[in-house]
Design a protein around this nucleic acid. Sequence first.
DNA 1: CTGAAAGCGCTAACAC
DNA 2: GTGTTAGCGCTTTCAG
Lengths: 351, 351
Amino acid sequence: MTRIQKVAELAGVSTATVSRALAGKSTVSDSTRARVVAAAKELGYVVSASASSLASGRTRNVGVVVPFLDRWFYSAVLKGAHGGLTDAGYDVTLYHLDTTEVGPGTGTEGTNPRRRRLFEEFLLRKRVDALIAVTLELSDEELAELHAVGKPLVGLGGPLAGVPTLSIDDVEVSRLATEHLISLGHREIAHIGGDPVLDRDFHLGWRRRKGFEQALESAGIALEPRLLNSADFTVAGGYRSAKELLGDPRTRPTAIFAGSDEMAMGAIMAARDLGLRVPDDVSVIGIDGHDLADFYELTTVDQFAEEQGRLAAQTLLRELSPDGEHPAPQNVALPFKLIVRGSTAAPPDRR
Amino acid sequence: MTRIQKVAELAGVSTATVSRALAGKSTVSDSTRARVVAAAKELGYVVSASASSLASGRTRNVGVVVPFLDRWFYSAVLKGAHGGLTDAGYDVTLYHLDTTEVGPGTGTEGTNPRRRRLFEEFLLRKRVDALIAVTLELSDEELAELHAVGKPLVGLGGPLAGVPTLSIDDVEVSRLATEHLISLGHREIAHIGGDPVLDRDFHLGWRRRKGFEQALESAGIALEPRLLNSADFTVAGGYRSAKELLGDPRTRPTAIFAGSDEMAMGAIMAARDLGLRVPDDVSVIGIDGHDLADFYELTTVDQFAEEQGRLAAQTLLRELSPDGEHPAPQNVALPFKLIVRGSTAAPPDRR
DNA sequence: CTGAAAGCGCTAACAC
DNA sequence: GTGTTAGCGCTTTCAG
């Protein structure tokens, strides 16, 4: 492994100059820089990350914490964040905080070893310059720990007090989805929402359900408790839930609004398996903008997941850069868009 | 940030002892260790990763390189590898090498800036102790670079010369899938394989097709070129491909063997959309053991993706541990298993 | 614009 | 079993 000393010798300068030249500092003459770069290239020199970090206090590494590694939304966000960070020359270290296991509000957050360990051993180990937390809710104590370390932190989709957070307005998104259905003439609308376990960590289900209820109320439609069901945000969960909802022909709704595209796809399949046509017999709408939504002809509210990841990366990068002193705004509302496809139409009695 | 010196003072020992005690070295008396641990805890001390790495030469960080961040198989592998590594106290730094962009054999691997950069700036930056490369093919030069750095490297699913590699025998897996179909009585079997672009990097499509051909040959069934089609391993790709295959009633096969579960799911949907029943009119089998396979009642050859990731992690960990000097075996054949579900049955003419 | 030198915080010989 | 000490390889004042 070539050290900086070798490069300095070959270029005929001091190690300090090599460091400056390679770091792109402006206080190096062009000719010197050229020689240094050439020397470095010739020797195949690459700086030692740990030595550089130790001396400078910067790691050029950011941590991304996600609750799931194998769910479409998080993969898409990760992809975007990773891309943004990599393009800026940062490494990304991945942390997985399984929130179905435990979380704040359960009284276990202080004792769960995995979660504790993540904080104590990993996040605080000075390995990263900053963190992106995806739909993560941290306890006050955890937040305080993070703040104490003084690392920039940006939240995505989660309600993190006192932390710059990017998120879509879930209530609005749900209203939009529900209003689309109402505008088509539906009055018997079911909602497949989040399940209480997941909810503990990011209140997603609750917020989306609230938007649903608001839209109904604005339209003067009474909320039918039997049309509220919950699932775990997976295709299979949506399928089961939709089967329940659609099974009884006397109480069958004319439309289903699922809190995620994956559940919506499950609902579409459930409808098919019950011999119902989508959208002729039942309309289905989801939220997310899933890769496969187009394939399923699923009407959805796209939330541009990959873009969200990129945006989170950019926000963080801005906090990390010494210039542009503007601190990131505390909360940024992310864009979303209704994409109408073939899974929604007017209800049977209006056709 | 608390430094080791503070802990040493509070515990009334030297910094060396603190280091030893916290690293779990056996040469520290129990009572001393207890005091050190208590002091560290009281002060909230966490070692500085960079200082520790610089001094010891170990980073406790391993890199995982994947070609896709948003495909089920890779997510599952990543999940497994991440879990295994984290449990052992390692951080994982994620690298994304988009092989659809470029790869060895295209003559661009030496010049593609992204790929070059990954090697020069990231992998060689001494940030990781070791690497897991998932279905990645490296050029001889790239392999040499990696070897020169002297970092353990384990490959998963990819043919890496001279590197311990874990992989399923794709030819065998395909034979198994095809033989299942043949044993049910099918003779008109189509295959949706990999597309040439992906193939460039890991020859997956080619190997799976070979197993398919072998099985046919063993059964004395002539290979019909028109029954060979290719797609990009996605649901949508499988759908399109299956539509082509099943569209013409005169040449329609009685079964489709897709090279991945995602393509198989697409094929199932294509069949449905053509008014064909699965498995009554057409059988479909895939490869992978996708999360949703059960849901689709898809017969498949499960390759235990998450387990593969864990195994790769364990293999690497073994190479990293100073004891057990046994170098990892060069090539390990991974297990796979035929899971028969509802998407395969005897062909129409035999029922 | 460039060099000399002092650490960054920790680990690993080497003594005792 | 524990302390002393010399770096690990780089960045960054501080001079000039």
